[in-house]
Design a protein around this nucleic acid. Structure first.
Lengths: 235, 235
DNA sequence: CGACCGTTTGATCCTTTTCAATCGTCGTGG
DNA sequence: CCACGACGATTGAAAAGGATCAAACGGTCG
């Protein structure tokens, strides 16, 4: 599906990028001089395909993605739902080829960081090198949290934790902490949490009946955050 | 437990490090000049504690580790069993504090890469920057594979995949691909695979009865690698 | 030799999956 | 504008997979 209108292209300086990433950076003039281009990604468009050569990293500027790992045998494992400030493609640096794919669930915009610039800029400016290392390391922390979710928590706790995580992230971006629309399908949630979609649906209903949330398809309202946190803990 | 004899300390140049990591590097003379110190870690000694300030990354030179994520509520999630060539501590770069701990299961030796040198060397030598980025990115790939294990595979498949992974890694280090001793307890395996120790034990016995492996406590022999791979696939 | 720690095995319970059917919503075309 | 069709979501009942509880076994170290 080709976008009918010209693809908007803009640029962003490194200091703004650091702000977007919530990574504190000294107001080094070089950070203002260094700019990256941004790229538009249409809804349902695949930004990164598994097996692709890794030419750039991407930092989400706006929009919403789904990233997932594809096994040769066809089964899929959701890895996360990156949104503004999150990084895409850091898995590709290791071997030069991406192992995970990234699809936009919303019309989105990403900051493009060519790998060539990654090393070139690391070389010229220590502040940028630090920025990049933190960027990539954050992916590790995020993945390890997900591992904890999948390995140690029961189904209800996983869903509760998932909703609380979304709540926090939306809130951090200035959206409502309590009321939001899920951009992903139940299938996507299931793939991410290691649950079948019936289970996800059932547990959503269960949390609703407990009065912790209110759900209508993709519209979610968090009624009792403390209660949800409790549902995560005691599992 | 204090080691009674003096702690051996040596150094390793960056080219040797790149070789250890199986990361191809041009024989740049600067790689030979740049050296890192190594550090001994005694059996059961904790190299990295969750919450510690992140001063260095470590690359395992010899030995065997267990790394795990600790939740505030006390529950634990195994993250992996790093051995020679694997990296420890890359989670700490994001915030400056480690979120995961690393314990030596064997008497081990690690190459120390101070974070200060990480940026300094990235600045002076592009080849080293590339090396470091690959190093850290590889952790992401590894974690994402684990996510797939936990999210998409059943208990038997997880154990089978775990054994095959160990087999590959031991083989890559020059040890036997078919016969090896597990350095970790069933509990450690369970924490890593998101299974209870009884389940791990039962499945080991099951694989043994199917003639795929032979187990006696921690001594494992892989009798039918293809069969094991099959056990991973069809789950 | 005896105590302890890690492992194995069995029986039962609980959670999640599976299979199946229905409902609701949105988009399309009559 | 309404009807239809497609897809996603929900719900129920039965089955499977792990967890839990409980007990015994085996090796190691004092």
């Amino acid at each position: 599906r080709i976008r009918p209108h010209p693809i908007p292209s803009a640029s962003m300086n490194a200091h703004t990028l650091a702000t977007l990433l919530h990574i504190g950076a000294d107001p080094d003039p070089v950070l203002f001089q260094t700019t990256f281009t941004t790229r538009h990604v249409g809804e349902k468009e695949t930004l990164i395909r598994a097996g692709d050569e890794c030419r750039s990293l991407y930092v989400v500027h706006s929009g919403f993605f789904r990233s997932s790992y594809l096994d040769r045998s066809g089964s899929i494992q959701g890895l996360g739902f990156p949104m503004a400030g999150d990084t895409l493609g850091a898995d590709g640096l290791a071997t030069g080829r991406h192992t995970a794919e990234a699809v936009a669930l919303d019309c989105s915009e990403v900051v493009v960081i060519p790998v060539a610039q990654l090393t070139a800029l690391s070389r010229s400016h220590a502040a940028l090198a630090t920025l990049f290392y933190r960027l990539i390391s954050r992916e590790i922390v995020r993945d390890q949290c997900s591992l904890f979710l999948l390995g140690s928590l029961g189904a209800e706790a996983r869903v509760a934790a998932f909703l609380l995580d979304l709540s926090d992230r939306f809130s951090a971006l200035g959206y409502s902490r309590t009321t939001f629309n899920l951009r992903m399908t139940r299938q996507d949630i299931g793939n991410y949490l290691g649950l079948k979609i019936e289970t996800v649906s059932r547990i959503m209903s269960g949390l609703s009946q407990q009065g912790l949330i209110s759900v209508h398809h993709r519209a979610v309202e968090i009624l009792d955050p403390a209660g949800l946190r409790l549902a995560v803990e005691d599992a």
